[in-house]
């Protein structure tokens, strides 16, 4: 368990480094994707339970069911968050395509020089 938490922390640090230090637009987008994935890993690790039953509600009573089963909420959260992350990535790629048409480069430092 602890190694999963550590991995997600390491991924977050790498992602922030990638977003802050790399000048390339595509690399910044990759950094954003890695950051969200690290949070997804954290969420899934939080929801882990060793020997639970599958979260299919066969009982009528909600409370006893909630004590036995694996927690399905983090997985639902992660799925929702993946959808959001996909739409953001698609939008960012679209914007970077248009930026490439305007500036003929994907490097932010060169873009600033072109702008003058």
């Amino acid at each position: 368990m602890i190694e999963l938490y550590l991995t997600s922390g390491l991924m977050m640090m790498l992602a922030v480094y990638c977003i802050a230090m790399k000048p390339n637009l595509i690399k910044k987008i990759i950094g954003l994707a890695i950051f969200t994935d690290a949070i997804h890993l954290l969420l899934i690790t939080i929801g882990f339970r060793g020997n639970g039953i599958p979260p299919i509600m066969t009982h009528e009573n909600v409370n006893t069911f909630a004590q036995l089963s694996v927690d399905p909420v983090p997985q639902a959260l992660v799925l929702t968050s993946i959808v959001i992350s996909i739409s953001i990535t698609a939008l960012a790629l679209g914007i970077s395509i248009i930026a490439y048409r305007h500036f003929n480069t994907l490097n932010t430092e060169e873009m600033n020089r072109l702008k003058g």
């Binding site: 599958p54 299919i56 509600m57 066969t58 009528e60």
Partner: peptide, 11 residues
């Protein structure tokens, strides 16, 4: 109304 394992028409 509730889920049944191996039964598609549930939940």
């Amino acid at each position: 109304p509730t889920g049944m394992i191996f039964n598609l028409w549930s939940a």
